Computed example of a mutant assay.
Amino acid sequence: MAKMLYSVSMSLDGFIAGAGGDMSWLADFTGPDPTIANLIGDVGSLLVGRNTYDGDDPNKGTEGEGEAFGGGWSGQQFVLTHRIPENSPPDIHFVDDFETAVAKSKAAAGEKYVNILGADVARQCVAAGLVDEVLVFLVPVLIGDGVRLFDHPGGTSIRLERLSVSEGPESTNLWFRVVR
């Protein structure tokens, strides 16, 4: 059965996107990373928020622009949205119901990970008790404003157990299991 993984690059001050969804801050840090290279083969599908799907691309102007993991991964993507377009690219499925999007992404992933992309979708998955693991690529930059890794008004406590810490060429990679 598929595991749900929230993987994300994050600035040292806790932001995964800059103000207005700006991802240009990440462009200088998108070089090869063994953790990402190993992860790509373990991802069976993506569960993506619409803001992330439509958002700014840190690979803008490169061969990997518009592609998951900068073009290093291909497969079924499930975009959770209230705005379903009439047409969609192959392997991109727009779904307007959270439970359906999760079920379809898990079925498509098989025994691999469903990789969650987008803060709001990740928050919904955490609230539903669905996230199994969290992988944060901690990037040595301060951006000061934007979209936080995890935002829960009023606060909450989600206990995590460290699985590994590794050094990439541009980040410190922190992998956790969600304690249930």
Rank of each mutant, 00 (worst) to 15 (best):
M1H: 15
M4F: 06
L5S: 05
M10E: 08
M10H: 11
S11W: 10
S11M: 11
L12M: 14
D13P: 12
G14V: 08
G14Q: 02
A17Q: 12
A17Y: 08
A19H: 09
A19E: 13
G21W: 03
D22E: 07
M23I: 01
S24R: 12
W25C: 02
W25H: 04
D28K: 11
G31R: 10
P32D: 02
P32Q: 00
P34A: 02
I36K: 13
I36V: 10
I36F: 05
L39P: 07
G41A: 07
V43K: 06
V43I: 13
S45L: 01
L47M: 08
V48L: 11
G49L: 07
G49F: 04
R50Y: 12
N51D: 07
N51M: 05
Y53L: 01
Y53W: 06
D54S: 09
D54P: 10
N59K: 06
N59G: 03
G61Y: 04
T62I: 09
E65D: 04
G66M: 03
E67T: 07
A68G: 04
A68Y: 10
A68P: 15
F69R: 04
F69H: 02
F69I: 00
G71C: 06
G72P: 00
W73F: 09
S74F: 08
S74V: 04
Q77G: 15
Q77V: 07
Q77H: 11
F78W: 02
R83W: 00
R83G: 02
R83V: 00
P85R: 01
E86H: 12
N87C: 01
S88V: 05
S88Y: 08
S88P: 15
P89K: 00
D91V: 00
I92N: 13
D96P: 13
D97W: 04
F98T: 03
E99F: 05
E99A: 13
T100D: 06
A101K: 05
K104I: 00
K104A: 00
S105H: 05
K106T: 05
A108Q: 02
A108V: 02
A109Q: 12
A109M: 12
G110H: 06
K112F: 00
I116R: 02
L117S: 10
L117R: 07
G118P: 07
A119K: 03
D120N: 14
A122W: 01
A127D: 13
L130H: 05
L130E: 08
V131T: 08
V131I: 14
D132M: 00
E133N: 14
L135P: 04
V136E: 08
L138G: 06
P140F: 01
L142M: 12
V147Y: 06
D151R: 12
D151S: 15
P153I: 01
G154K: 10
G155A: 05
S157A: 10
I158T: 15
R159P: 15
E161V: 12
R162C: 05
L163D: 14
S164N: 14
V165F: 01
S171G: 08
S171P: 11
T172I: 14
N173E: 10
N173S: 11
W175Q: 14
W175T: 14
W175P: 11
R177G: 05
V179F: 10
